[in-house]
Design a protein around this nucleic acid. Structure first.
Length: 968
RNA sequence: GCCCGGAUGGCGGAAUUGGUAGACGCGCUGGACUUAAAAUCCAGUUCUCAGUACUGAGAGUACGGGUUCGAUUCCCGUUCCGGGUACCA
């Protein structure tokens, strides 16, 4: 048997496929364990070495749990619908179904090359009609429900209709777009269209006009999480706010439960904090202000009702519905001018320059407590979407209000004395209330309570909770997504497409580009027109398919339900969910929402989908640059040359074929991106350095892949290289380097296939784990991978001796050998549990070093280590396990258990410290008592040497730990 | 600005109810084997100072304080780095 990692990888990958080694059945006799990787979108560039970090970690857990006797569900599938897939298709001119199929196949190949133990028979793909049939069905269920705030759950829309026709809105506490009051008679008098419109106010999936993020370049609306700094996350295009008719999901109804549910899941604190911030709960009060000369009231939301005596003006959002009505003739032109200005400003302008702007409407509100006249302004800094879109401005205790007041010359009344709290900021909610009538002298928390009570008692408002989270816009004017399963009748009333007619598939289209706000599906006239009316032409966002996929894996081929009842009651939820932190907010939050909805309608037995979440760290890639300079030769000629990054301007240079002169730098010089595959990482004088060797340049001339082609065009920019020579006489240039994300554009993506082909999948797997804690970001570097390869080789050599023959003996193990084995069992078992994979690899190295030193070749020791290493190095383990005479796969073998009796120490090495400084160590019997230890230590000659001439004030003895003498 | 992480040799990192700081690996230095190289194996490798090999002394986990017999670990303050988020009333 040869240590030929390529052959071993191939042999066992074929074997696993053929024997379906990782097939999972819904065998309810065994305890279940569900370990899931986040759904990848199969991009055209394939996997790079950053992706597998999480896959390997979860695979180790899956394999370990399998060996530990669990029925393990460890599936993989693809998030194939959505903007990226469609944008990629448009860029490459290939139909998304084709490119998706190709990319999916590539991903699967790469994953199989890594030896990941997925049950591919359970794979799903969101763009598969058998899958999105159920996506459409789920959204249909959401559409068919409303949220009863009193029972705190979703209920069928028919029950709402029954209530409305019997009592109207009386006694109704529902999650709603706007508060409505309606009698039963009025409801019953509505026609079909009127009734449908009214119900939209309550449905959990509803259609309404709202301000949405419109992205002109992508031709679609985007959800809040798809927008970063006023630009689209995908493609970095500008985004503006526009009122549009859109489908949305009423996630706000679930805000409180999404918040509360965080208490019962095991996510990192940071991730929980992000979810909490995104939901953005704030507790405060709703206050009504009368407006002079108008019947309407101005409603504002504040978290600081205690500062109401400091409210010297009001500000409403420019888009607020009362703006037009409140504007006085004298102020009309000023307001119109301001509205034009605001309309011109993009979201990006608003975010980037933080100027104080606004205009006076001419109207005044009446302060509910003082009766004072309070001017009403409009200003950009008040957002239409948050609270009521209006505020009472308290310039003494709010930065923005203060800047506004200063600019417009408005009175500032100090209402909170913070002298007792030096350093406190406005947000700390501390201080003593002044200038505030009945609240004077109160501390802030007390005053908030008192103010709220007073306002409620006066009928001027009420306590209120507000959330930052907005309802989730769920329409896209794009082709590549699930069509909304809706048909509008001749009265424009939407009707759900019934289950037996699902899925609503996409029409075949040649040109599926989105044009100016109209969905491409509108152009598919035959598809839109049905006997019952016209189809909805909006599609769903990518999250529609990915927010419930973990349930489909439980029962992927079920044609009668999205998941069978028995299957979901067995698998229940995901025990360990592994993926990148970039999906922390949106994906996790939205699938928690759908899960809670499915719980409400009795389709899932658990309240949360993911019990424990592990966010793997990003692996960055070095981005290297070659330096271009000008060689000014003695004859005054200028020659562009490639130089080392450490060559300064003015350095004398001699370049072969050109002559000598010195280096100059001008606007044509600088740095050029160098593909990572041509860069060699070395270490010189303990400093790491990145070099371009002559051999790599020659290689770039030969190879025909993209990186080489790019690099050739770059290298044409100069005619020569100012080579340096290393110790071995090879020619190179020093490059400059920075760390960045791995991406195709930066030519720094490293393909795991390349590493596997060189070192084998097992070495790659263990090396990625050895890099450090899995949740920490780290730069990719190949330095060190040789060390892991050497370790695997040494481990192999424990089993295989001279002439590549198995050299394992049947001798009985010694106590020392058993101690090595059981120490390893304990360490690996415990550390897998802690998801501390890097220390597992170290433990294997330590054990291998020790067994090599002992020259241990005994089956009784070595065979259990094969079962331990199987999750990490599945191929080598399989090869060795078979060589030891086992017929079944090592991955079905049991996990070894450690026994304490082999771990106990006979003697313990005690550090002996004097005033806390360790001076020597002494070996003492493990079972020695405190007194025996002290006596033995005091008797030691060396210890006495340290104690001579000093008074021992105290002796601290911690059995099995240490001894410390306090001397004076 | 706010929230969340983090800072340990030349490098990746290890060390948890507070008890020998630097496991393991890389790199580097020296040696063995070899015609040579590669591979492999052995030894050394936190820094400073002192000495004769065995060694000894001092400093040391971003920085400044504190608690403690004892602090990488707990507390207070500061700096820097990474991530998220931002006119959210």
């Amino acid at each position: 048997m040869k240590f030929d990692v390529q052959a071993i990888d191939k042999k066992w990958q074929d074997y696993w496929q053929e024997h379906k080694t990782y097939r999972t059945t819904n065998d309810t006799a065994r305890p279940k364990y569900y370990v899931l990787d986040m759904f990848p979108y199969p991009s055209g560039s394939g996997l790079h070495v950053g992706h597998p970090l999480g896959y390997i970690g979860s695979d180790i857990v899956a394999r370990h749990k399998r060996q530990a006797g669990y029925n393990v569900l460890h599936p993989m599938g693809f998030d194939a619908f959505g903007l990226p897939a469609e944008q990629y298709a448009i860029d490459t001119g290939v139909h998304p179904s084709e490119s998706t199929a190709r990319n999916t196949a590539r991903y699967r190949e790469q994953m199989e090359r890594l030896g990941l133990s997925f049950d591919w028979d359970r794979s799903v793909n969101t763009s598969d009609p058998d899958y999105f049939k159920w996506t459409q069905w789920i959204i249909g269920r959401v559409y068919d429900h409303w949220y009863d705030c009193r029972e705190d759950r979703a209920r069928p829309i028919q029950e709402l209709i029954d209530h409305l026709s019997a009592h109207g809105t009386a006694g109704l506490e529902a999650a709603e777009s706007e508060a409505l009051e309606l009698s039963a008679e009025a409801f019953n008098a509505l026609d079909a269209k009127g009734r449908s419109d009214l119900l939209m106010n309550y449905r959990l999936a509803f259609r309404s006009v709202s301000y949405v993020n419109w992205c002109e370049a992508l031709g679609t609306v985007l959800a809040n999480d798809e927008v970063k700094d006023g630009r689209s996350e995908r493609g970095n295009h500008p985004v503006e706010q526009r009122p549009m008719l859109q489908w949305s999901l009423r996630i706000t109804a679930y805000a409180e439960r999404l918040l509360a549910g965080l208490a019962e899941v095991d996510y990192s604190e940071g991730l929980k904090a992000q979810q909490v911030n995104w939901i953005g709960k704030s507790i405060g009060a709703l206050v009504h202000f009368d407006i002079e000369g108008h019947d309407e009231q101005l409603d504002i939301f504040t978290t600081r009702p205690d500062t109401i005596y400091g409210a010297t003006f009001m500000v409403i959002a420019p888009e607020h519905e009362l703006v037009d009505k409140l504007t006085t003739p004298a102020q009309r032109s000023e307001i119109d001018e301001y509205l034009t200005y605001v309309g011109r400003r993009s979201e990006l302008d608003r975010v980037s320059e933080n100027r104080v702007t606004g205009a006076f409407t001419g109207a005044y509100a009446t302060h509910p407590l003082t009766g004072n006249r309070v001017p009403i302004y409009i200003a950009e800094y008040v957002l239409k979407d948050y609270g009521t879109g209006a505020i009472m401005a308290v310039p003494s205790d709010d930065d923005r209000d203060k800047r506004f007041a200063e600019k417009f010359g408005i009175e500032i009344i100090d209402v909170v004395d913070k002298t007792d709290y030096p350093g406190a900021t406005l947000k700390d909610k501390v201080g003593r209330i002044i200038n505030s009538d009945f609240m004077n002298g109160m501390e802030v928390p007390e005053a908030i309570e008192a103010a709220t009570e007073r306002i409620e008692a006066m009928g001027r408002g009420k306590r209120q909770v507000n959330y930052r989270i907005r309802d989730l816009v769920f329409s896209r004017q794009r082709y590549w997504g699930e069509p909304w399963p809706i048909i509008y009748d001749e009265n424009d009333v939407p009707h759900l497409v019934p289950l037996d007619e699902l899925p609503v598939t996409l029409p075949e289209m040649e040109d599926f580009r989105a044009v100016s706000g109209a969905s491409p599906l509108e152009r598919a006239k035959d598809w839109v027109a049905t006997p019952r009316g016209r189809r909805e032409t909006d599609t769903m966002p990518a999250t529609a398919g990915s927010n419930w996929y973990y349930l489909r894996y439980m029962d992927p081929h079920n044609g009668d339900a999205f998941v069978g009842e028995e299957a979901v009651n067995y698998w229940r939820d995901v025990d360990l969910y592994v993926g990148g932190a970039e999906h922390a907010v949106s994906h996790i939050l939205y699938s928690r929402l759908i899960h809670k909805f499915l719980f409400d309608i009795g389709k899932v037995p658990t309240r949360e989908p993911y019990k424990k979440l592990l966010n793997q760290g990003m692996i960055g890639g070095p981005i290297s640059y070659i330096h271009l300079g000008i060689l000014l030769t003695d004859d005054g000629q200028r020659h562009p040359v490639w130089v080392s990054s450490d060559v300064a301007e003015g350095t004398p240079l001699t370049v072969e074929g050109i002559g000598s002169g010195y280096l100059v730098v001008d606007e044509s010089t600088g740095t050029r991106l160098t593909p990572l595959r041509f860069v060699t990482e070395t270490s010189v004088n303990n400093e790491s350095s990145f070099r371009l060797y002559l051999t790599a340049v020659e290689e770039a001339q030969r190879l025909d892949h993209q990186d080489a082609a790019y690099f050739r065009t770059i290298l044409q920019q100069a005619s020569a290289f100012a080579w340096q020579t290393d110790r071995e006489g090879r020619q190179y240039l020093e490059l400059s380097v920075e760390q960045g994300k791995m991406s195709k554009r930066k030519y720094n993506a490293v393909n795991p296939d390349d590493i596997c082909n060189r070192y084998g999948a097992d070495c790659f797997r263990m090396y990625e784990m050895f890099l450090g804690p899995i949740d920490q970001a780290k730069p990719w570097s190949v330095s060190g991978i040789d060390g892991v390869y050497r370790f695997l080789r040494r481990y192999w050599n424990l089993f295989v001796g001279e002439g590549d023959r198995l050299s394992v003996t049947e001798e009985a193990p010694t106590r020392a050998e058993m101690k090595v084995l059981h120490t390893l069992i304990r360490k690996v078992t415990e550390d897998i549990d802690k998801l501390s994979f890097n220390t597992c690899v170290s433990a294997f190295m330590v054990a291998t070093n020790e067994l090599t030193k002992m020259n241990c070749r005994k089956r009784g020791i070595l065979e259990p280590t094969v079962r331990l290493i199987a999750p990490f190095a599945p191929h080598l383990a399989e090869e060795l396990f078979a060589a030891l005479g086992n017929m079944d796969s090592v991955h079905h073998a049991t996990w070894p258990e450690w026994r304490e009796e082999y771990l106990v120490e006979d003697s313990i090495t005690y550090p002996i410290a004097f005033n806390g400084k360790t001076r020597l160590t002494l070996d003492l019997p493990a079972e020695a008592s405190r007194e025996e230890i002290e006596a033995a230590v005091r008797a030691d000659a060396q210890v006495q040497g340290h104690l001579t001439g000093k008074a021992v004030r105290k002796v601290i003895v911690v059995p099995k730990r240490m001894v410390n003498f306090v001397v004076g």
